[in-house]
C-alpha cells in the first residue's frame, strides 16, 4: 500500500470520497486498507476514491480533521461527514457507518 495513493476508476469526480487516516504502516492500518478496498469494490464499484493519510507524515491533519482513534475512515462525500473507527473488520458496521445499509437492518441481522 502506498500512502496517499489515489484510486480513481472514472475521470469525473467520484460520488464517494473516502479518507483513511493511519499512523505508519502498522498491521492494523494495512488490514484496514485491505478491508476498505474490498468493501468498496463490492458495494461501490467505480464510484469511490480512497485517500490514505499517514499522520506520522502530516500530523497537523489530525487536528484539522478531528482524528483521535486510528485507523479512522472519514466519509467526506456524500455528505454528511461520517467517521468510522477501527480496522474495518466488521463489515456490517462499516456498511451502516457508510449509510450503505440501514441501521435497523443491521440490528435485525445481528439479532438474527
Amino acid at each position: 500500500m502506498t500512502p496517499a495513493k489515489r484510486q480513481t476508476h472514472q475521470a469525473k469526480p467520484p460520488k464517494w470520497d473516502l479518507r483513511l487516516y493511519v499512523a505508519g504502516q502498522t498491521a492494523r492500518s494495512v488490514t484496514a486498507f485491505a478491508n476498505l478496498k474490498r468493501i468498496c469494490e463490492e458495494h461501490l464499484p467505480g464510484q469511490y476514491r480512497i485517500q490514505v493519510i499517514d499522520l506520522l507524515k502530516q500530523p497537523q491533519l489530525a487536528r484539522g480533521d478531528q482524528i483521535l482513534a486510528l485507523p479512522t475512515l472519514v466519509r467526506k462525500l456524500p455528505e454528511p461527514v461520517r467517521k468510522i473507527i477501527g480496522d474495518l473488520s466488521n463489515v456490517e458496521k462499516v456498511l451502516v457507518g457508510l449509510d450503505l445499509r440501514a441501521r435497523d437492518a443491521a440490528n435485525e441481522e445481528k439479532a438474527g
Partner: peptide, 8 residues
C-alpha cells in the same frame, strides 16, 4: 458520528 468497526 462514530461507528466502531474493529480494533483501534
Amino acid at each position: 458520528e462514530i461507528e466502531e468497526t474493529g480494533e483501534y
